[in-house]
């Protein structure tokens, strides 16, 4: 399992780096899907098969489909890539990279001095246990999450609706 973890970890990091550096938006999306799939493997290797399945279904499936859908709707093509070339210059990476590096150092320091570390056995915690925990201890959280989803649905509908009166006016 360790080998699987490390291989997929390397794939995840590399594909994520590719995501944030690509100029073509469709390429970036494909790399993101790779990254998410690799992440699903990591979850599996950590003994969380249920979450791994969700990662594939929801993230790599549903959410990415949304992205692709929007990209196709906006009909972004070569023009957009040209634009990205102007926008994305290597020297712009310096500041954010330094900031992220500092944050990374701090996090590493916190992780390694935090104490309660130790090996992960990778003993699977199955869907049954998750379900029991979800609908017992975290029932209220589930309710709230459902409300959040509903709010997201309504909000997305409201925003996505084309504004007729304005179209007539223009």
């Amino acid at each position: 399992m360790t080998v699987v973890f490390w291989i997929s970890a390397v794939i995840t990091v590399i594909s994520t780096v590719m995501v944030i550096t690509r100029r073509n938006i469709v390429h970036a999306l494909l790399y993101l899907i790779v990254s998410l799939l690799a992440m699903a493997v990591i979850f599996f290797s950590l003994g969380a098969p249920f979450v791994a399945a969700l990662e594939v279904i929801v993230y790599a499936g549903a959410i990415m489909v949304l992205f692709i859908f929007v990209v196709m709707m906006l009909n972004l093509g070569e023009r957009s890539t040209q634009q990205e070339r102007r926008w994305l210059r290597p020297q712009m990476m310096i500041g954010p990279a330094i900031l992220a590096a500092i944050l990374m150092i701090e996090l590493g320091y916190a992780i390694f001095t935090g104490g309660s570390g130790g090996p992960i056995t990778g003993e699977p915690v199955g869907a049954k246990q998750v379900g029991i925990s979800l609908f017992d201890t975290y029932l209220l959280g589930v309710e709230l999450a459902s409300m959040l989803l509903l709010a997201g649905l309504v909000g997305a509908y409201h925003l996505g609706r084309s504004d007729r009166s304005e179209e007539e006016g223009s």
């Binding site: 990091v13 780096v17 990591i42 090996p119």
Partner: peptide, 30 residues
């Protein structure tokens, strides 16, 4: 076996990469 520190470091690296992406990109979809 994998240790917890290693897993968290991986999460941290991914988070930092995401942060760089947010700060660098001008395209809202990115």
């Amino acid at each position: 076996s994998v240790s917890m520190e290693q897993g968290l470091i991986l999460a941290g690296v991914l988070f930092a990469l995401g942060l760089i992406g947010v700060l660098v990109r001008r395209n809202i979809i990115f």
